[in-house]
Every structure is written in C-alpha cells, then in structure tokens.
Amino acid sequence: MTLSDFTSFLMKNSKTIMEYSENHFTLVLLAVGISLAIWVPVGLLLTKSDKWAARVLALANTIFCIPSLSMFAILVTIPMFGLGRKSALLALVLYAMMPLIRSVYDGVKNVDRNVIEAARGMGMGTRRILIEILVPLGMPIIFAGFRITVVMTTGIAAIATYIGERNLGRFIQEGLIRSNTPMMVTGALIISAIAIGLDTILGLVEKRIVPKGLRISR
C-alpha cells in the first residue's frame, strides 16, 4: 500500500467516510452524554457512603474488565437488546461507569476536608459547598475521567460495527473480510487520528481547567 492508495481511497469514498464518521460521532456523543447524566450523579451520591462506594466501584471495576467484544457479544444474545444501537449504547455506557464514577468519587473525596469543614463553619449549605467548592476543586480529576471516557468510547464504538453499527469500524471489518488493505488501513488511521486528536485536545483543556490557585505556589 502506498500514499496514493490512501489518498485515492479517501477521495473515492469521501461520502461513505462522512456517513460513517457521522454515525460514529452520534454514537459516541449519545453514549458519553448518557454516561455523564447517569454516572456523575451516582459518583456524587457515593461520596456520602463509603460502604456503597466500595460495592459500586467493585462492580464498575469488574464490568470494566470484560473484553469489549465479549460485552457486545453477551448483550446481543439478550432478546431485549439484540443487534444494533441499543446494545452498543448500553455497552459503552457500562464501560464509562468505571472511569466516570471513580473520577467523580476521587475528585470529590480528594478535596481537603478542612476546606469543607471551614466552609460549613462559615454557614455554607450543602448545595453551595458542592457547587462552589467540591466541583471546582474536584474538576481536574473529574475531567481526567471524562477524557479517558471520551477516548475509550471512541475506540470501543468502532468495535460495535460487529453488532451492526455502520461507523468507522466498518472500514476495518470490511477491509479484513475483502483483504482490502487500503480500506482497512484508512479506517484504522482515521479512528486513530480522531482518538489521538480528542485525547490531545482534552489533555490541553485538562491542564487549563486546574483552578489558578492550585497551579501556582510560592
């Protein structure tokens, strides 16, 4: 395979690439959105109970261990889900459980207890402490979890092509079946570029998101 194979593939299939990319992003966006909506509140709630936190984190850890292809395969056999987007979404949301819950929990738990004690002593209510102290101070860790989730979801979403998603993973799948190397490599490169790009951009944001007071020292 040469560079010209690559560019000619890009030219010829630009429409398909657009379509697959769109599908890919829609799936990632949906999965990350749903995950945030569920796991962030769960993570926050768990900071209230160490006992439950240990249980839920252990569960999340276990789920996270399951190979992604296995996860898709298992969900597909469940009649309610089957082949298609429902299974794909559920799998991605389940994977996001570990990094999101863990980072929210760690982020909030890492906040200096004395700061919270002092804030409470000054008459700040629970809500205010959450909004003004816990979230901004926990943000660097929470955001790191978010970054991992986004990059991971982008990668795993590609595998969902095997359960019927028509996204960027399909180039790899089809390329393998048809021994079409340019197709396969192009697909792999596009996904890699997107993942690395997202990781880099979010990494930059992560550095900027640290509150100024924590970045500087004497």
């Binding site: 390329g175 490599v185 890699s192």
Partner: peptide, 18 residues
C-alpha cells in the same frame, strides 16, 4: 506511549496486519 495508548485497540490490530 500516551499517544500510542490513545490508539483504539481495533485500529492497532488493523494496522499490524499490513
């Protein structure tokens, strides 16, 4: 290594073949 890690596994497999 961080960059390498961001590459999705399926892409690594696909790139390994050729």
């Amino acid at each position: 290594l961080n960059l390498l890690q961001a590459v999705p596994g399926i892409a690594v497999i696909a790139l390994a073949l050729p």
